[in-house]
Design a binder for these strands. Structure first.
Length: 443
RNA sequence: GCCGAUUUAGCUUAGCUGGUGGAGCGUGGGACUGUUAAUCCCAAGGUCGAGGGUUCGAGCCCCUCAAUCGGCGCCA
């Protein structure tokens, strides 16, 4: 049952005039009692197949008529160049085999009306039928774009000799705030699903020096926004002997690499989503400015926004700040009080930490958070105590400082957020096959 | 956790000042030899989210609950 011929290649003209066997699924049918048009779909595209009763005979023609939407089918025929067919090619059918039929009492539920109503967004019905919605052209396109994003991230880091490194997903302690941990029963104890690879990456930093991962992270946030998932894909990196500035250079580098890869590999997909290619090209080609937190606060205050020094910048403030940005911007040097214990204090002014957030334009918000880590044992103990965090769960982390601590840092990137931003999606749910949020774990 | 909204056939929806729910898609049957979400004719398919109240009478008015959607906070 090897498949050797792909519809995308047929549409590109590789098989004109030849007899080919196509394997796929019925996307749509139409026609009369003597001639039927079957639009066949596979992972690479669609093609119109023309079935005529006087060529096929009554029995085969009736089976074509009975093939409902999403039946799987093997069609043999001659590739014909014909302007009347979408894509410029059609298959003149000589034989047909229905592989998996569809029961008329339970037809494929995703209809044109369901798709039109969603209009790029997602109705409850489409979320309930996500396993079937994946087959539609919009989801297929998104999944291809997503694959290229993942490939670009791996490519960026591997080109620079980073080592891909895996951390456990069951953990004992928090990275971010403890309130967003998912508890998991663990043989009579409580474990948590990881919020980040970071702490375990820091343990391997003295071994590998340059390391990265793409892995799921879990946060029990009851957020109902277009930017949040409870399970999201987290691209993280950690580098020894690196400053906040160098780490930002990698953040900018990987994001620009993702944008340029999408233009290289997926221009037709971006166009089919209606994405402005000039915007994506700008994100690939332009440098990303860096702005200190203080400057951002002053800018916001100048715009009449009610913001006090020392508070973290929430989404409503980010949105105002980024509305005039035409490329992503880094925000650096946040006040210590707004950030967790592992951020390194700025030696020039201990009110600040050496950190950065990368804010995407067009209202997509934060896509990267990172910075230098506190690396002296003395300082990390002090920061834990300031936060009132008990040391037990973090003893392994403290040990990494006890034995040859060095300056280092890294960042975490929300891969789904990047996908959402670069594809121009309305909601982060659109770019992941089975989205998880506070109200949905099925299908 | 807070604010706002929605819920009518498998899907998408119309439903007027309260008077026994219409349509399109899909499905089934029929017509049609080049269709582009084909077209035309016919049919089946509804305890109007659940419960209670007002009323001679509730899809519509009132109350409670549920589910869902959007936004905020928190973050990537």
């Amino acid at each position: 049952m090897v498949k050797t011929i792909w519809i995308g290649d047929v549409q590109s003209g590789m098989y004109d005039g030849q007899v080919v066997e196509l394997k796929g699924w019925v996307k749509r049918t139409r026609g009369s009692n003597k001639i039927r048009f079957v639009v066949l779909r596979d992972s690479t595209g669609t093609i119109q197949c023309v079935a005529k009763r006087d060529v096929l005979g009554d029995e085969a023609f009736e089976s074509v008529k009975a093939a409902l939407i999403e039946s799987s089918i093997i069609i043999t025929g001659t590739v014909n160049v014909d302007e009347r067919s979408e894509g410029g090619h059609e298959l003149v059918v000589s034989s047909v085999e229905i592989v998996g039929s569809v029961n008329p009492e339970r037809p494929f539920p995703i209809t044109e009306s369901a798709m039109a109503a969603a209009d790029g967004g997602e109705t409850e019905f489409l979320l309930d039928n996500r396993h079937l919605y994946l087959r539609t052209s919009r989801m297929t396109t998104m999944l291809k774009l997503r694959s290229s994003v993942f490939g670009a991230i791996h490519g960026y880091f591997r080109n620079l000799d980073f080592i891909e490194y895996q951390a456990p997903n069951f953990v004992a302690g928090a990275v971010e705030g403890g309130s967003t941990l998912f508890e998991v029963p663990y043989f009579g104890r409580t474990a948590y699903l990881t919020q980040s690879w970071q702490l375990y990456a820091e343990a391997a930093m003295p071994a590998l020096e340059r390391l990265y991962t793409i892995a799921p992270s879990f946060r029990a946030e009851k957020s109902r926004t277009r930017r949040h998932l409870t399970e999201f894909w987290h691209a993280e990196m950690e580098v020894a002997w690196a400053s906040n500035q160098e780490i930002m250079t990698h953040g900018e580098g990987v994001v620009r690499k993702i944008a340029s890869t999408l233009l290289d590999e997926r221009t037709p997909e971006l166009e089919s989503l209606g994405r402005d290619l000039d915007l994506v090209a700008r994100y690939a080609d332009s440098p990303y400015p860096r702005m200190r937190y203080d400057e951002a606060v002053e800018t916001l205050q100048g715009m009449g926004v009610d913001v006090e020094w020392g508070q973290d910048l929430d989404y409503s403030k980010e949105k105002v700040l980024t509305q005039d940005f035409d490329v992503p911007h880094f925000l650096t040097h946040y006040p210590k009080i707004a950030k967790p214990f592992y951020h390194r204090m700025d030696p020039e002014d201990e009110k600040y930490v050496l950190c950065h957030d990368l804010l995407a334009p067009e209202g997509y918000g934060e896509i990267i958070g990172g910075g230098e880590r506190t690396w002296s044992e003395e300082e990390i103990l002090k920061r834990l105590d300031e936060e009132g965090t008990p040391h037990e769960a973090y003893q392994f982390y403290i040990d990494t400082r006890s034995y040859g601590g060095v300056p280092h840092g890294g960042f975490g990137m929300g891969v789904d957020r990047v996908c959402s931003w670069l594809t121009g999606a309305d909601h982060i749910r659109e770019v992941i096959p089975f989205p998880r949020d506070s109200r949905r774990v099925t299908p």
